[in-house]
Amino acid sequence: MATTTRECLELQLLEMEMLLSMFPNKELILENANSVLYIRRYLEGIRESLPPVIEFSVFLNIQNSEVKAVMHVSLPQSYPQEEPQVFVRSVALDRQQQNFLNKELGSYIRSLDRGELCISMAVQWLQDNISTYIQNSKQNDEPECEIKATTYTFHRMWIYSHHIYRQELRKKILDYAKRLNLTGFCLTGKPGVICIEGVKEQCEEFWRDIRYPNWKHISCKHTESKEVTGKIDDLRLFNSFEELVFTAHGDYGLRNDYHMDLGQFLEYLKQHNCEHIFQILFGIEGKY
């Protein structure tokens, strides 16, 4: 007999309670702090609509070493009947070994019986196996360290969204940009605009993470890249990553359906020598 969504959510709630007891010192961070509460209310009949998917990160100190790793997890509503989305990052891994590790971790998860809760087992697998990939990373770094230290692709991405309102999303954008050493801005409200600039791999990681697993009304409108030897800071248009909140107008009701003053935004772009991007983002020429 097929497992229902309700039964899957009951199992997810059970696993989250177990994981939170395993990591009581804030090693487990929920993307939406209320996601577990929403599932509980749905199961109790207090909430009628299906709760959002659970997404969280587990920050791990690998046993018997100084290595740290982060496991990012997204649980589909049909998990554990459907495979969870799991991705691991660690500064101790080069990109090749990180990809190898995640492929092997994915194979391990797929080898388990569907219907079986597996996140705690994935954590244990990571702790048992990551040292092998770290050792390989060190070996791979030896002949290429000079090139990796001096050669980069500077990248800038202009991202457009129908709107950016939710506080947890805004915090996620700021946190990810700062963690990845990206500069730029996030224009909140309606429309929403994000500009990020920095090392290309870190820009692409940011782009992959913020729209994961499914941000419908968002697109990358324009990109700029340049090969750089040495420091990249001279190519940056922005000194830091900041959130922009300009004068708004419109309906301040429950939906917070307000529009940003695009004239102020155009002036901001002008101050940073990138007013040409206004037409690319909005399809109209900016007027002063």
Rank of each mutant, 00 (worst) to 15 (best):
G192C: 08
K68V: 11
Y42W: 08
L101A: 07
Y252T: 12
R89I: 14
D128T: 11
N64Q: 11
L28F: 00
N64K: 11
R156G: 01
I164V: 14
L13S: 11
W207T: 11
I159T: 10
Q264K: 08
E104R: 07
I39Q: 02
L75I: 05
G250C: 08
E285I: 14
S57W: 00
M260T: 14
A149M: 12
R156I: 08
Q77A: 10
D113A: 12
P52Q: 11
H259K: 12
Q98L: 06
R110F: 03
E224A: 08
G283C: 11
Q81W: 03
D128H: 11
Q167C: 08
Y160C: 04
T188L: 02
I218D: 00
I277D: 04
V88A: 10
V67K: 06
I109Y: 01
I218R: 00
P24A: 13
E285M: 09
L30W: 04
T188A: 07
K148D: 14
R179Y: 09
E144W: 08
A2P: 15
P80I: 12
Q12I: 13
Q279D: 14
K68Y: 07
E168A: 12
H276Q: 14
A122W: 00
P24Q: 13
G283H: 03
N140Q: 12
S57H: 05
L28N: 04
E242M: 04
S57N: 09
N34L: 13
Y165A: 10
E31M: 07
Y268E: 04
M121Y: 06
V86H: 03
M157E: 12
N140E: 12
R47W: 02
E10W: 00
E146L: 12
L37D: 15
F246A: 02
E224G: 00
V58E: 04
I46K: 12
E66C: 05
Q77G: 07
D261V: 01
R179T: 12
T3C: 06
C274Y: 04
A122I: 10
D175F: 09
T183L: 03
G115Y: 01
M121K: 15
L75F: 10
E116H: 07
Q127M: 12
C118E: 01
S111G: 15
Q77F: 02
N25H: 13
P80E: 10
A177D: 03
A92Y: 07
R6E: 15
N102C: 08
R211M: 05
L20G: 04
L30A: 05
H162A: 13
I134M: 06
I54V: 15
D234G: 07
